[in-house]
Design a protein around this nucleic acid. Structure first.
Length: 465
RNA sequence: UCCAGAAUAGCUCAAUGGUAGAGCAAUCGGCUGUUAACCGAUGGGUUGUAGGUUCGAGCCCUACUUCUGGAGCCA
C-alpha cells in the first residue's frame, strides 16, 4: 500500500507541509464533536502519533470517522497542515478515510492506563500501548547498539549452538530435548548412555544454558568474539528478574585478564546506555515520566562516573562493619545475599559496583584460580535497583589446575575433552562474561518485571501465546 | 520451592456479618477545535473455584487455582 510513515512527517519540519499524503495506522483515541472529529493515529513508525482532523464540511467520510473506536485500523488521505493551536505541530486535514479493520466494542485496550498485570493477559495486543511501543523500540535500539559496540572494537559475532550436549556446569537447569516416546520413560536400571543411544542425537541433549564453553573455542582462534542469542534455563525461580528464555550477550576475549574484562564491561554498559539515550529520547522521556522519576538523569550520571571495583573480601568487611542487622549474617565464604548486594550498591556507593575475587567454592569450575589459593578471578556487576546484571571471570587456562578442580567437583573429564583441549594446545589467558539483555532493559526503562520487557515471556508455568 | 498478600462489572477500585456501588469503557443522545475532550441518559454482577460456620457471608473458617510482592537460584 502506498503511504507515508508518520515518523517522516514528524521528523521533517516543513517538507510535507501543504502536501497531499496517505497515512495508515491504528486509532489510539477518537474524539468527535458536532461537525468535527479528531483521531489520534499511530502507525508504529514512531512513539508519537499524529492527529487526523475530519471535518464534516470537507470529508464525505465524516459519519464513518465518528463511528470508529480505539484500535481501528484506518487509511486516511489528506493535507499536512500546521495545528490549529500550535504552529509547530503537524496534523492532517482528512479528505477521505477508509476503515481497513474495525475494532468492535469488546476491544480490550482502552484509552486509559492499564496495569501491566492485565496487559500480560493480552500480550498479543499490548504492543499497541505506549509502554510496549516504547519498550520494544528501546529493545531494538539496544540490540543494535550491542552490535555497534562490539563491531567498533573488532569483535567477531559468533552463533553458538542452541541445541547442545554440554551442560555449562553451574549455570542452571537444562531443558531436555528429545524425540523419544514420552510414553516410554527411562527405567531406573537403564543407564543414561543406553537409554539415549536411540534418541535423535544418540546422547542426552538439551537447550543451551550458556554459549560460553563453545564461545571459548572461537576466542582461542579469533581473539575477540561475542555471542548474542537466546538462552534457556529450567530453573524453578519465580521472580521479577528471571525468565526461562532470555537473551544473553557473551563476549569472550583471548589474552585478557580480569581487569581487561572489567574495563570492557564498563565501557560496554556506558556505550549502550549512551546510544539508547541519544536515539530514543521520546521513549526515555516517557519512562522517566511514568515509570521512574529521574531515570534519564540517573542514566546520564552512570555514563559519566567510574564504576566501583570492590574485592569480595573488602565487601564482607564493609558489611560486617556496617552494624546493619541483616537477615543473613555475613561471613567470609558466604555468598552475598540480595540484601547485602543492595546495601553495597544502594547505600554505600549508589552506583554500579564490580565485586571481584570471590571464594572459589561459590563459583564455577572454569574460573581462574588466584595465587592466594582461596579465591577465583571472577566478577559480578551489581546495579542499584536491579542487582546482578553481569557475571563473568577470567578462565582457568592451566590444564592441571582445571583438571584438579574438576576432580574435586566430581565432574566427568571425558565430557569436557574438547574444552580441556583448549588448555592442552596453545592455551592462553582469556576472559569473558554474560550480560542479560532483559535485565539491562529493566534498568534502562525502569520497568519492574522481566515479563514486561519481552514479547511473550516464558516463565515457570506460563507458555501462553 | 519457601514466606507474605490479593482475587468484586470489560478495566481500575469501593462496600461495619444485614438491599453489591463509583470512575473509566460500552450503547444512545447533545455539543464547531478536541488532546485520557466534555455534558446527559441507558445497559452491565453465580463477588476466582469447592466446601464449611451463621437466621443471614463479598466480608469469618478450610482446601484448591491464579496473580502480586519478597526470598533462594542466577543473567
Amino acid at each position: 500500500m502506498k503511504h507515508t510513515d508518520i515518523v517522516e512527517i514528524l521528523k521533517s519540519k516543513d517538507l510535507f507541509l501543504g502536501q497531499n499524503i496517505t497515512l495508515c495506522g491504528w486509532a489510539r483515541t477518537v474524539r468527535s464533536s458536532k461537525g468535527i472529529c479528531f483521531i489520534e493515529l499511530n502507525d508504529g513508525s514512531s512513539f508519537q502519533g499524529i492527529q487526523l482532523v475530519v471535518d464534516e464540511a470537507n470529508c464525505p467520510d465524516y459519519a464513518l470517522a465518528q463511528k470508529q473506536g480505539v484500535g481501528a485500523a484506518l487509511k486516511a488521505t489528506g493535507t499536512v497542515v500546521s495545528s490549529y493551536n500550535n504552529k509547530e505541530v503537524r496534523e492532517i486535514n482528512v479528505a477521505t478515510l477508509e476503515v481497513l479493520g474495525e475494532a468492535p466494542s469488546d476491544y480490550p485496550l482502552q484509552k486509559k492506563r492499564h496495569t501491566l498485570e492485565f496487559l500480560r493477559t493480552i500480550a498479543h495486543l499490548r504492543a499497541r500501548t505506549n509502554t510496549f511501543n516504547a519498550m520494544f523500540r528501546i529493545r531494538s535500539t539496544l540490540s543494535a547498539a550491542i552490535h555497534h559496540f562490539f563491531a567498533g572494537r573488532g569483535f567477531v559475532y559468533v552463533h553458538t549452538p542452541i541445541l547442545t550436549g554440554s551442560d555449562c556446569e553451574g549455570a542452571g537447569e537444562m531443558f531436555r530435548v528429545t524425540t523419544l516416546d514420552p510414553a516410554m520413560p527411562k527405567r531406573p536400571e537403564i543407564s543414561d548412555a543406553d537409554f539415549y543411544k536411540d534418541d535423535f542425537f544418540g546422547c542426552k541433549a538439551g537447550l543451551t544454558v550458556s554459549g560460553q564453553l563453545e564461545g571459548e573455542t572461537l576466542a582461542m582462534a579469533l581473539g575477540k568474539i561475542y555471542t548474542f542469542g537466546p538462552t534457556f534455563r529450567a530453573e524453578n525461580s519465580n521472580t521479577a528478574r528471571h525468565a526461562a528464555e532470555f537473551w544473553q550477550i557473551e563476549p569472550e576475549i583471548a589474552f585478557a585478564e580480569l581487569e581487561d574484562l572489567i574495563e570492557l564491561a564498563e565501557a560496554m554498559i556506558k556505550s549502550l546506555i549512551s546510544e539508547v539515550l541519544e536515539k530514543c529520547p521520546e521513549e526515555m522521556a516517557f519512562f522517566d515520566k511514568h515509570y521512574e522519576n529521574g531515570l534519564v538523569q540517573k542514566l546520564k550520571s552512570i555514563v559519566q562516573q567510574n564504576f566501583v571495583i570492590l574485592e569480595y573480601t573488602e565487601a564482607v568487611r564493609i558489611l560486617k562493619e556496617s552494624k546493619v542487622q541483616f537477615e543473613y549474617p555475613v561471613e567470609w565464604g558466604c555468598d552475598l545475599q540480595t540484601e547485602h548486594e543492595r546495601y553495597i550498591t544502594e547505600k554505600v556507593y549508589n552506583k554500579p559496583v564490580f565485586v571481584i575475587n570471590y571464594p572459589a567454592e561459590l563459583k564455577s569450575f572454569y574460573m581462574k584460580q588466584n595465587p592466594d589459593g582461596k579465591t577465583v578471578a571472577a566478577t559480578d556487576l551489581l546495579l542499584p535497583g536491579v542487582g546482578e546484571i553481569i557475571g563473568g571471570s577470567q578462565r582457568e587456562d592451566n590444564l592441571e589446575k582445571l583438571e584438579r578442580r574438576m576432580k574435586e567437583l566430581d565432574m566427568k573429564q571425558e565430557d569436557y575433552w574438547w574444552y580441556l583441549d583448549l588448555r592442552r594446545f596453545g592455551t592462553a589467558p582469556h576472559s569473558g562474561f554474560g550480560l542479560g539483555l532483559e535485565r539491562l532493559l529493566l534498568y534502562i526503562t525502569g520497568i519492574g518485571n522481566i515479563r514486561d520487557v519481552a514479547i511473550f515471556p516464558r516463565t515457570k508455568g506460563n507458555l501462553q501465546f
